[in-house]
Structure formats: C-alpha cells, structure tokens
Amino acid sequence: MQNSATGVIRHNQDVLQVIKSYWQLTKPRIILLLLITTAGGMWIAAQGQVDPVLLIVTLLSGTFAAGSANTINCLYDRDIDYIMERTRSRPLPSGRVSPRDALIFAITLAVLSFGLLTYFANLLSACLAMSGIFFYVVVYTHWLKRHSTQNIVIGGAAGAIPPLVGWAAVTGDLSWAAWVLFAIIFLWTPPHFWALAIMIREDYAKVGVPMLPVVDGNEPTSKQIFYYTLSLIPVSLLLVYPLHVMGAVYATIALLLGGIFVQKAWKLMQAPSDLMVARSTFKYSILYLMLLCAGMGIDSLPMTHQMVSAIAQHMQTVIGALL
C-alpha cells in the first residue's frame, strides 16, 4: 500500500511491528517527562499520600492524552519529517502507518483519556487534559511551529498542563501552588528545546521551521536560554515561600539543581556554537526536571516532615544549651 503523503510503499508487518509503530507515534520518551510532572503535582496536592488507584488511572490517562497529541503532531508534520534524516524513519513518513489509521488511533486515545479521568477523577482534570491536546495540536503545531520564533515559548504551555491535571485529579480545583508548577514547566521548556534546536539547527533550517537559532542565531538563543534558566530558581522557590507547600528539603534540592542548570546555561552563552555544550545543557535540562519533581515527592513525605521537625528541635535544644 502506498502512503499518499510521501510516496513511500508501506510494507507488510507482523503484529509486534505494528504495535511498535503505533507506540513510536506517541513519542514515549516525551511522555515520560510529562508523567513525572503529573505525578509531582498529585504528590504535592495529596501531601505525599496519593490514592494508588487514582495515581495509576491519572498517569494512564495522561499517557493517552499525550500520546494522542503527539500522534496528531506526527500526522501534521509528516511532510517535514520525511525531509529530515533524523525523522524520516518515523511510522508516518516511512509509510508504516497510514494517515487515516493514525488519526483514528489519536481520537481513540483522546476519548479514553477523557473517559477515564471523568469517571475516576473529575471533569476538571479531564477538560484540562483535553485542553493540553488542543493547545499542542492547534496553537503550537498548526499555528506557531512553522510561523514564529516564539513557537516554543507560547507552545510550552501545552507541556505545562500535566501538573495541573495531576493537581485537579486529587483536589478537584487549582490552587496557586498548581499554577506555580505550571510556571516552572513553562519557564523550563525554552531552555530545554532551544538547546536541542541549537544541536539540530541545520535540520530545522532545511525544512523552514523558524526556530530561534535558525532565525536569530545561536548567540541570541543562548542568551535567552540563560535568562529563562535564571528565572527558574526564584519561581521554583515560590512553593517554599510564600506558598509554604514545600519545605527545607525541596528548597535545598531546588537551589542545587537550579545552580547547576544556570552554570550550564552560562557556559553555553560563552560558547553558543559548541554543540557539545548545547548537548550537555539539553541532557541536564531533562535531569533537572526529573530530580526537581523527585525533590517535591521526597519533601511531601510524612517521614520527611518528621525528620525535619526532629532536626529543628535538636538544633533548638543545642542552641538553647549554648546560650
């Protein structure tokens, strides 16, 4: 069967190859990060005591929602994916999955996500998940990606919705802390993707996608990466003060991780065309987000609260004895 979008002949596959092709359409590596932020939002909202069933269902629903959005993104971008060497072997440009089947798959995932969240959590979390799909597909993929250097900045809102879904699934509403989580992901997105864009700048230039490094160059891009990274530190600490939903353990982790991130962004600003430095910044951005969310989880545990209280009391006793 021939793929009309690319002219590539679609070869027959066994069942495992078919499953692998549809799995690749969902971009599972991207989904993992989204699920970590979703779990982080749930963990804080539940103060470290999340209902296991709700956690599993929400993460599964988040997987379906993100998979749906990523599949439609692959469907929309199959023309430029065919041109770039890095993406030519993806299921749609290679012809292993037809556009019609990909669309049916995406719609099915979205319906499953909405249904599961509505039934097991609440309507707010389900609507937030659908808004994430809409924002990623319509605002980012269709409107911004091929037309604006700010595509990643504005489009980053789509990737910042998962912690809101997690928070809403637990509480049924959205507090200021939930919006701070949103802001953290929103500010993290440009340094993460622009570092990648510096690495694969030529690919984006070849297909006419106006990523910031392509239009403005690596030097202005590296400066933007540094400024966004620097802003992450005070915003991440808003959870400690004035919101008081995180404590000293998280504050220490956030400062340490943020400091390393700023250092890497600074190095990139000094050598904006060094692809190894860009790669290091990109890889660390992933580690930063994972460890920051892990820090949220650790700080939320009742055991951590008890430990911190015990240390504080001990210090007060020692100080009192010295005075």
Rank of each mutant, 00 (worst) to 15 (best):
Y136W: 01
G217A: 08
L103H: 08
M1P: 09
V153Y: 07
R10G: 15
W188Q: 06
A106C: 14
Y241C: 08
A254Y: 02
S4H: 13
Q316C: 05
A158D: 09
H244R: 08
G95S: 10
M276C: 07
A183W: 11
L196N: 06
V165I: 14
I9K: 02
M269I: 00
L287I: 14
V153D: 05
M1F: 04
I107E: 04
L268G: 03
L60Q: 04
W43P: 00
S21N: 09
F261T: 05
S131D: 03
V308I: 15
R279A: 13
N151A: 14
P191W: 07
A312F: 04
L32W: 12
A45V: 09
Q313W: 12
F134T: 11
V137G: 00
L75N: 13
E202K: 04
S61R: 06
L257T: 08
M315Y: 14
V262T: 12
I72N: 02
D81Q: 00
I133C: 02
Y119S: 13
V153Q: 07
T281S: 13
S280E: 15
L237R: 12
G217I: 06
L257Y: 08
G258M: 03
V249Q: 03
W194I: 03
V318C: 01
V277I: 14
A197M: 06
G62S: 15
I9V: 12
K206H: 07
N218L: 02
H11N: 12
S113P: 00
L60M: 15
P52F: 08
I152H: 03
A106E: 14
